[in-house]
Every structure is written in C-alpha cells, then in structure tokens.
Design a protein around this nucleic acid. Sequence first.
DNA 1: TTTGTATATAACCTTTAGGTTACCTACAAA
DNA 2: TTTGTAGGTAACCTAAAGGTTATATACAAA
Lengths: 108, 108
Amino acid sequence: MRTAQDPLSRTFFALADPTRRAVLTRLAHGAATVKELSAPFRMSGPAVSKHLRVLERAGLIQRGRAAQWRPRTLEATPLREAAAFADEFRRFWEPNYAPLDGLLEVER
Amino acid sequence: MRTAQDPLSRTFFALADPTRRAVLTRLAHGAATVKELSAPFRMSGPAVSKHLRVLERAGLIQRGRAAQWRPRTLEATPLREAAAFADEFRRFWEPNYAPLDGLLEVER
DNA sequence: TTTGTATATAACCTTTAGGTTACCTACAAA
DNA sequence: TTTGTAGGTAACCTAAAGGTTATATACAAA
C-alpha cells in the first residue's frame, strides 16, 4: 500500500481489517477510550494505537481529550463515498433493482 | 496487510486502490481483455496482472478464455456485504435517515 | 510527591504490496 | 513453421503494514 493515496482508497484500506471494522462498530454505540476499544483484542496497546491512527488518517474517527483519556468518536462521513461506490454495482447483485430514475418512469 | 484474511477484508482491500476500482468500473460495462483493461494505465503488464489477481482473490472478477485472450468479467456479489457494512452507518451521515422498521412504524 | 493508570512514541522485525525487467507459454495468422 | 501478439510467471527491489517490547509523557489520586 503506497501511502498518501486518495481519500476513498484510504477509507477502503481502513475498512480492510477486522479489528478496525470492530472499532468502528463499537464507536457507533458511542465514544470510547483507547482502553475500552482495546479490550476485545489480544494485541498490545501500541498495535491498537496504530489501527486507530489508520482510522484517523481516513477521517473515520476523531480524538477527544478528558484528563488522561483520549476518547475516540466516530466520524462516518467518509463512509458515504464508500457506500456510494459499492452501490453503483447494486444492479449486479440485486437482479430486481432498478435505479431511481427508472423507477420513477415506471410509477408515474 | 497479512494475507489470508476474511472475505470482507479481502473485498475492502481490493477496493483500496484506484487502479483496481477503475478496472471494476470498466468491467461494469462488459467483459474486457487484459490488454483492454491495461490501456488506461501507465504501468507495466505484470503490474496490472497483479491487480487483477487481487481482484480475483476477492472474488470480484472471473477469468474466461477465448483463443489467446483471458477476458475478465465482473463478479459483484462480494460488494453486497461491503455495501451492507457501510450502510450500517448511514444514519450517521444522513441525519434524516430512519432504518426500515422505524419508517414502517411512522407510516402505518 | 510518589505511585498508578492512560496513552503515545521509538526502535525493531517479518511479511507483503506494488512496482520493475526478463523470460516463458499459448495461440493465430502469414 | 516462423512470427507476432496476449498473457502469465520469476526474480528482484523498496516501502509499508502490522505486530512486538521498551520507554516516555500526562494526569489523578493517595
């Protein structure tokens, strides 16, 4: 992975790891400290820290601060473009899918 | 990227490169030979070949054969899970979005 | 003011990504 | 049956991913 990729590549790259996806899913339920985010995993603290940095570079999380804690929060907007890309292919896996304008044409 | 990841990670990893995304977009318009797929890029043949292998490992393309050509076709089904994952976060980037059951509750 | 806890950084290691050039194979056409 | 074209494979390189342990920093509490 040559770094300094375009934003969409960074987003998909960040999603290409189960640990990082689990972190995002956890954060969907609310902010969490690094300790809390690390809890489900067997890896060291620094390893989790690196995963968080990848998510941060992709703009998928933000870092807060409260005393000695640095709670992370979800920042989901980059996922919009990711979802949009995948959605372009929806008709291939969903045979009965018709894009919006086609649908309107039928219903009017 | 430790290889032999779960399918969803392989899918997202395959998407984490603009060349590979462009190949998928091209294939959405129909099958294409390796030569045709390579045309838009400045990189060598083997480099494109490796990208195709990544897409193949993710199950996103299939390899056909006709004389000396090995036309690739799109296989979009892995994108369904990718889209589903991103969609779980839709409410965060789309404030007025309500998941289906909530919507039904309002309309009935 | 020491001690414990939360987190980040540094230095290191192994494996892989992603590119290159050189070479090999399969097939079609002349 | 040589020659050209499509494509794959091998060997190589550099940079980065993703992990480790050790160390540093920041803050709270005793």
